[in-house]
């Protein structure tokens, strides 16, 4: 279809927001435009010639578009682009920078489960899963995506406020020689040495060691 006269201000800040490789394109409305602006979106694989339209994001009035499915191969890199329309006018296509799902995603903290005996607590950590198309889809742990993935674990004695920090590669940790009948709080973070990525610390999971018999 012939392009309209493109004098509409451009969409701004077109960028990917990615968490666990759920890759969503975001942008801000063109400056000075109120309601009624519609958008269309296209994307391309870096090194491959063609732009591909995203039908589900054609003539939309929201300012985001989920491109997780289209950018799920993290061995590739991508560009995406947005165009705005209002009252018969249009903007230029505005592109993202090159998006590399492997290095440009954010990672959620691990899931933490704890159990205790009289003098120790056992901690089991589970890395988040990579985004998947449907709940029935194959689950891929981020551990498979980042083989060098490690966990930083914080253990706090609630009574003495003493804190220990551990850095482990496997997903279980037993903390021995603790005080019976005492509350301990555990929090964990994911750390990928290269490419350098780390999650925030998880919320605290507190448990008490058993009382002395």
């Amino acid at each position: 279809s012939g392009e309209l006269y493109c004098s509409l201000p451009n969409p701004r800040n077109v960028h990917f927001e990615s968490i666990n490789m759920k890759n969503v394109l975001h942008w801000s409305a063109p400056e000075g435009t109120g309601d009624g602006v519609l958008y269309k979106v296209k994307y391309s694989v870096y090194g491959v010639g063609k732009w591909i339209r995203k039908p589900e994001c054609r003539n939309i009035n929201r300012t985001w578009c989920d491109l997780s499915s289209e950018t799920s191969d993290y061995e590739e890199q991508y560009y995406a682009s947005v165009k705005a329309f209002l009252d018969g006018m249009c903007s230029e296509w505005m592109e993202t920078t090159r998006f590399n799902p492997l290095t440009d995603t954010k990672i959620d903290p691990p899931m933490v489960s704890v159990s205790s005996t009289e003098k120790s607590i056992s901690i089991t950590l589970t890395a988040p899963e990579k985004w998947k198309r449907s709940p029935e889809g194959e689950s891929i742990s981020l551990l498979q995506v980042y083989p060098g993935l490690q966990y930083n674990v914080s253990v706090l004695n609630k009574k003495t406020k003493k804190r220990w920090l551990f850095s482990i590669s496997n997903n279980t940790l037993v903390v021995p020689w603790l005080e019976p009948g005492t509350a301990y709080c555990v929090s964990a973070q994911i750390h990928v040495p290269t490419p350098l990525l780390h999650s925030v610390f998880s919320k605290e999971y507190c448990i008490a060691t058993l009382k002395d018999k």
């Binding site: 090194g47 061995e75 890199q77 920078t97 040495p193 290269t194 490419p195 350098l196």
Partner: peptide
């Protein structure tokens, strides 16, 4: 690791100087 951190620091700057989307040296 040093190469990775050095590159990460200038990645956006360097890639912005490459306007050609349709050709990749290494991956296509």
């Amino acid at each position: 690791t040093e190469i990775r951190s050095g590159f990460t620091a200038i990645k956006a700057n360097i890639q912005a100087r490459d306007p050609i989307r349709t050709l990749s040296i290494l991956s296509h």
